[in-house]
Amino acid sequence: MNTSPLSHPGLNLGSVDEYSHEEAEPVIFGFWIFLMADLVLFALLFATYATMSVQGQADGPSPADIFDLSSAFIGTMLLLASSITFGMASLALKYRADGPHLVLWLVLTFILGAGFIGMELRDFMTMIAQGAVPQLSGFLSSFYLLVATHGIHVTAGLIWMIVLLIQLRVMGRTTTVKLRIMRLALFWHMLDIVWVCIFSFVYLYGVTL
């Protein structure tokens, strides 16, 4: 089992399919570190929101005045479902060397993700139409920054997904492309977790305030 004289933190896959796994170790590990740095960013946005949602309302509305829970809930379900479909894509990547499964699951994930972004934009539009713009109060500034940062991440993930779908077509299932799909999967699931926090902390807790 232990062929390497040295165990590193993270994946230690050296004993099977050595070359691919050697290549995989640093990129996957490095991507975990990137996610960690990204989560620090979100943590700070949450902290800022925590102070401003209560103390920064000024003369503007409170969270309960403007949040549309049912709309946010639909968005949440879309995003959670997209995590499941990405999970299926990962399984297809591992167990089905050929066939359309991988691409189909990825396309389904894309549609669900795009649906989430659509719902989010619709919510923003509704809020803006009600006059709840980010320039109104510190609370709204921090709300828009937190939620939109997540939204921009999801959008980046969608663009990444398109690039990878093209690469699957052009380059085929090379180790490089596989590793990129694995990293996108990690990214996607992380965004899901962040959204769960946003939905619970910003929306659900927000309307009780």
Partner: peptide, 12 residues
């Protein structure tokens, strides 16, 4: 025109 650090409108 956000209000993260402004004196008014809930900035801090």
């Amino acid at each position: 025109g956000f209000h993260f650090f402004t004196n008014d409108s809930g900035g801090n």
